[in-house]
């Protein structure tokens, strides 16, 4: 059963999910490499949690316009808007306090607002809200061909953009002052990186859900850092780990009943990290 799934013979839907998860894993791994090099790992956590109010608002807006509220691009647009607002809020607050505190405050209050909106939607009984909370932990069970295509092309686009921007991104992460002297605008590069991470988060909502997407960004990246001494190498290894975990995680969860996809992918990535630590970790740790 598992072998069939791994070889893409577990049925059309299972194959679709495996390939989609692999592409998502690759783009998350690559984006996460730059994110952790810039020391902004937890920013993605705030961003992911801040998508929730947007999903609720988009749902309400679409129901008000007469739909059933389940139109995926609409939900993702809403998610993107509040995630961007959350990011802006973190940056605004970080002028007055440590970035850590700003991140946590935004994460909690945006997420709280999202939950309030979800209870409002349930109370109103409008549209077809059932299953809206799958964005919390993701769900690949009902993944359609269109969803897999969105994930695949989204992941591919993110990876290409990272490839093109890898040098200025690396310069800003290594030494922002020098990057500025060399004519790179660190703010623009940070904004570009955050936009790419946001794209990964949005795409990942369908697979791992908003609580665990941060693992797909960070865990392969910190493992990859211990295997490579260059930025390109780190990003490539990270993408490879992400792709493998996505692929195998989806295949395993498809063949074992009740095993949710997102958490399995995260546990596989954690396994790779533990192995890496044992082999390449600092002895004095």
């Amino acid at each position: 059963m598992i072998w069939q799934a791994l070889l893409l013979q577990g049925g059309y839907n299972a194959a679709l999910v495996s390939i989609g998860a692999a592409l998502l894993g690759a783009s998350a791994g690559a984006a996460g490499a730059f994110l952790t090099l810039r020391r902004r790992a937890l920013m993605s956590d705030a961003m992911a949690h801040a998508t929730l109010p947007g999903i609720g608002l988009a749902f309400l807006a679409m129901v008000a316009l007469g739909g059933d509220g389940r139109f995926l691009p609409g939900l993702m647009l809403g998610a993107a808007l509040t995630a961007a607002a959350g990011l802006w809020a973190v940056q605004r607050l970080a002028r007055q306090m440590h970035e850590d505190a700003a991140t946590g405050a935004v994460l909690a209050s945006f997420y709280g607002a999202g939950i309030v909106l979800l209870t409002l939607i349930q109370g109103l009984g409008a549209g077809r809200p059932a299953g809206l909370e799958t964005v919390l932990l993701g769900s690949t069970a009902g993944m359609l061909r269109a969803d897999a295509l969105v994930i695949g092309f989204g992941g591919l686009a993110v990876t290409c953009a990272l490839w093109a921007l890898s040098r200025p991104l690396a310069m800003v992460a290594f030494d922002p002052l020098h990057a500025r002297m060399m004519g790179v605008n660190p703010r623009q590069m940070d904004a570009a990186l955050m936009a790419l991470v946001l794209a990964v988060v949005l795409v990942g909502l369908n697979v791992t859900g908003l609580i665990l997407i941060v693992a797909l960004l960070v865990t392969p990246a910190v493992s990859a850092r211990m295997w490579s001494t260059t930025v390109t190498g780190t990003a490539s290894v990270s993408a490879l780990i992400g792709a493998a975990c996505g692929y195998f995680g989806a295949a395993i969860s498809a063949s074992v009943p009740d095993l949710p996809t997102g958490p399995v992918i995260v546990l596989l990535a954690a396994g790779v990290f533990v192995l890496t630590l044992l082999i390449r970790g600092r002895a004095d740790g």
Partner: peptide, 20 residues
């Protein structure tokens, strides 16, 4: 940070290559 010595020095050349 995962950069080699030569990568750091190359960062000084990017005005000539252009960033991309």
């Amino acid at each position: 940070f995962p950069v080699r010595v030569i990568d750091v020095v190359l960062m000084g050349c990017y005005r000539k290559t252009g960033l991309l």
